[in-house]
Simulated scan of single mutants.
Amino acid sequence: MEKAELRRSLLKTRQSMSVAQWKQSSDRICTYITNSPLFTQAKTILAYFSFKKEPDLGSLFANISFDGGQDTQTRKTWGFPRCVGDSLCWHLYTKDSLQKSAYGIIEPHADAPTIKPEEVDLIIIPSVGCDRQGYRLGYGGGYYDRLLSSPEWATKPTIGIVFDFAYLPQLPIEPWDQPLQNVCTEMGLTKVRS
């Protein structure tokens, strides 16, 4: 199956999930993440806001108070992406720094403080699908592949986030596709490469 056809199929399955199933599976994913050493040892984490029934990570950073961008409960600093041209720019998360993009995605304001690659300990990446080798199927824009192919980001620990039905034995891959190191579903967190 080609990428575009596979993407349509997986997105259709994801959209057909009941709200209760989506929420329960998202909560289980968050539990696996919070119990992992990757998360507990990280000080600065890059994540995403759920869009179109992507697994919702909101419980990782919801209902908490922030002091200078740091979560005062877990002492973690959170960053979120903003699309700038064909790249992602990462900004510090504060409750008053968010807006909806032209695509309806919640993202930081352009004037929110940025996060430099050397500050980042973990990147949690939304995915349409992932495979057992760590390859990711996204929406087709190539944002994360471009990010992870640059030297300052290439060695950062990564977790691809998908529901279990989208964790496949193998995806069609292109030469520019960048594999992730870990994949998390509602069934568990798996290290797929070092």
Rank of each mutant, 00 (worst) to 15 (best):
A166D: 06
G69I: 02
L137H: 01
A166E: 06
D27T: 05
T185L: 05
W78P: 03
I45C: 10
L98V: 05
S26R: 11
E5K: 11
E54R: 02
D67Y: 10
E107V: 01
Y135V: 05
L11N: 09
P108F: 00
R14N: 13
M187S: 13
L147R: 01
K116D: 00
P151N: 07
L171G: 04
Y93W: 08
P113R: 00
A20H: 15
L180Q: 10
G138R: 02
I29P: 08
V183M: 04
L46D: 05
G58P: 00
G188T: 09
E186G: 04
P113H: 00
Q133S: 14
P151I: 03
G58Q: 05
A20E: 15
S127H: 03
V162L: 11
N63T: 02
L98Y: 04
T190D: 08
Y48S: 10
G69V: 10
F39A: 13
P172V: 11
E152T: 11
I105W: 04
T158L: 06
D71Y: 04
K156P: 00
Y139S: 06
L189G: 13
L57Q: 06
G85E: 10
T40S: 15
S36A: 15
P126M: 05
D56C: 07
V120F: 01
T44Y: 03
R193I: 07
Q24Y: 11
L189K: 07
P37I: 12
I173R: 15
R7S: 10
S127W: 00
G141F: 02
Y167N: 06
T74E: 09
K52R: 14
K43I: 08
W90P: 00
K12M: 12
S18H: 12
I173P: 08
D56Q: 01
G140V: 07
H109M: 12
L171V: 07
S59H: 05
K53R: 12
E5R: 12
D177T: 02
I161P: 02
S65A: 09
K116M: 01
R14S: 10
G85A: 07
G142N: 02
K100G: 01
Q41E: 14
